[in-house]
Computed example of a mutant assay.
Amino acid sequence: IKRLYNYILHRRLHAEGVQRALTAPDKASQDSKPAMFAALALAELDKVRRRQIERVCPLDYLSVDTIRRCLQDCQLGAYAEQQWIWEQMERYDAMLMTCITKRDDALSKYDWSITVKPDLDDRDSLLAESQQRTITDLCNAIVNMDEAITALSQASRRHYKFLQPYADGDGLHLLPVDNWLMCRDGYRGPWGYNPNAQFSRYRGEPLPVPLEDLILRLHPRPIDMPAQMLVLNRSTTLAQWDVFLERLGTPPAFFVLPPDCSEELRQEYIKMSAMCYSAATGVIDHDSDIKSIPISQTSVDLFDRRYKVATEE
């Protein structure tokens, strides 16, 4: 909204011209639409070149080393891999997905409005009210205004979000730009375009549309930054817990063979022990014995407490 306001204020876009653009979708009348509403959608460019990112599931190799490498890349302005990890993490981690869904649902219940700054003198008040009507008309004409505001909220989780003003035969739109298509030459350097979503790339190409015509929301403390470590802690704890239960959930048992056991009988014992381990039944020689090793229940409790701590955090 602020970017739209500045555009209208500085370029003197009149309400009459906006209305002409909204009521005449044919190409000949598109000259009256705001110049920042381009006819070129970034989301549709180079889709074939970046198809390789869709074949990568970062959750398969997510580790402390991966997170450390991604954080180092982000310091340079290479965001593609980190943003792709967050995209997949938000979709597949049940707890994080629930939190995001609740936030988006709450945000969707609010309506937007253009307000006039209070305590203006008469001259500025009249000008502000005229600007308010113009901007309200323009925002009402944006087809996906509510969805665009919800998309901007993604910056709270992922550090930034770009929207592209776009115009087609259906009207005016604010299209979300995938975060992995943007990079930055340095921690606070200029923004660039990463059409291939190439990992570790921080020096991008010039944007096909002017950068000043994009709407950017930047958040200095993204939620997904600490969340990814907590997600890793919980998933790692569960994986290690599963391995522990698989190996030691059934108490180990060792068969004591009778004296002077032949190799043939020894193989029969090995076969029988495998059957017993799989909850089958069988018989053993009268002279043989079975030694079981009890497993302390405190080991399982340690995993349970670790998982609860990670979940609460």
Score class of each variant (00 low, 15 high):
117 K>R: 15
263 E>A: 11
177 V>K: 03
112 W>Q: 07
249 G>A: 08
2 K>E: 14
78 A>W: 01
304 D>Q: 15
169 G>Q: 07
42 L>E: 01
300 V>S: 13
142 I>T: 07
218 L>C: 10
220 P>W: 00
233 N>Y: 06
32 S>H: 09
127 L>R: 15
297 Q>C: 11
66 T>N: 06
168 D>A: 06
10 H>N: 12
170 D>G: 12
50 R>Q: 03
3 R>C: 06
35 A>G: 03
36 M>W: 09
261 C>G: 01
88 Q>E: 14
178 D>N: 06
9 L>T: 13
3 R>H: 13
221 R>E: 13
99 C>F: 08
165 P>W: 00
86 W>T: 00
119 D>Q: 12
271 K>E: 14
269 Y>R: 07
90 E>N: 06
154 Q>D: 13
230 L>V: 07
232 L>N: 00
31 D>H: 11
139 C>Y: 04
232 L>V: 00
81 E>C: 08
104 D>W: 07
107 L>S: 09
77 G>S: 05
292 S>N: 05
7 Y>I: 02
64 V>P: 02
171 G>R: 00
21 A>D: 05
14 H>Y: 09
28 A>F: 12
222 P>E: 03
293 I>C: 09
94 A>K: 11
246 E>L: 04
50 R>S: 07
279 A>W: 08
18 V>F: 06
114 I>S: 04
145 M>Q: 08
157 R>Y: 15
56 V>Y: 10
312 E>N: 14
201 R>N: 05
61 Y>I: 14
37 F>R: 02
145 M>C: 05
296 S>N: 14
148 A>K: 03
312 E>G: 02
190 P>S: 10
261 C>I: 04
67 I>H: 02
68 R>G: 05
312 E>M: 11
143 V>D: 06
51 R>I: 01
259 P>R: 08
249 G>T: 09
72 Q>T: 13
302 L>Q: 14
27 K>A: 15
115 T>S: 11
168 D>N: 15
193 Y>T: 00
304 D>V: 14
148 A>I: 04
6 N>D: 12
163 L>R: 01
64 V>R: 13
278 S>L: 10
83 Q>I: 02
195 P>N: 01
83 Q>H: 13
92 Y>K: 06
75 Q>W: 09
310 A>T: 05
231 V>M: 05
198 Q>D: 10
146 D>V: 07
302 L>G: 09
62 L>Y: 07
165 P>I: 04
247 R>P: 02
230 L>I: 10
210 P>S: 05
138 L>Q: 03
221 R>H: 12
236 T>C: 02
63 S>G: 03
147 E>S: 13
262 S>P: 03
182 M>A: 15
121 D>N: 11
65 D>H: 11
10 H>T: 10
147 E>N: 11
191 W>H: 08
47 K>E: 12
305 R>S: 11
69 R>G: 14
259 P>A: 13
117 K>F: 10
180 W>S: 14
12 R>H: 15
206 P>E: 07
90 E>D: 06
181 L>H: 06
129 E>V: 14
212 E>T: 13
161 K>P: 00
247 R>C: 09
212 E>Q: 13
88 Q>V: 10
117 K>V: 15
277 Y>A: 15
169 G>K: 11
144 N>Y: 05
189 G>S: 00
214 L>H: 00
18 V>M: 06
238 L>R: 13
16 E>F: 12
135 I>L: 15
80 A>D: 04
284 I>C: 06
283 V>H: 11
9 L>G: 02
133 R>W: 11
271 K>R: 15
65 D>R: 15
84 W>I: 04
